[in-house]
Amino acid sequence: MQFESFAEFIDMGGYAFYVWLAYGITFFSLGTLIVVSARQKKKVLAEIAKKIQREERLKENRGNKQ
């Protein structure tokens, strides 16, 4: 351990603002990317499911007319 106390660790030898800004933005943007990427699959499947439902409704209506 390079730091004597937790407060010293947070202070980063006086560079707290720059170090934590860098780490903060890094993990925030990676987190956002991961969440957006993980949601993609659900969105795509929901769209396809909607399309299938629409197709089935069309098929039923066509059947009623005849």
């Binding site: 980063m12 030898g13 006086g14 560079y15 720059y18 170090v19 860098a22 780490y23 890094t26």
Partner: peptide, 11 residues
């Protein structure tokens, strides 16, 4: 560079 260099580990 003191502790500021620790940015290297992600940069």
């Amino acid at each position: 560079q003191g502790d500021s260099y620790r940015i290297i580990f992600i940069h």
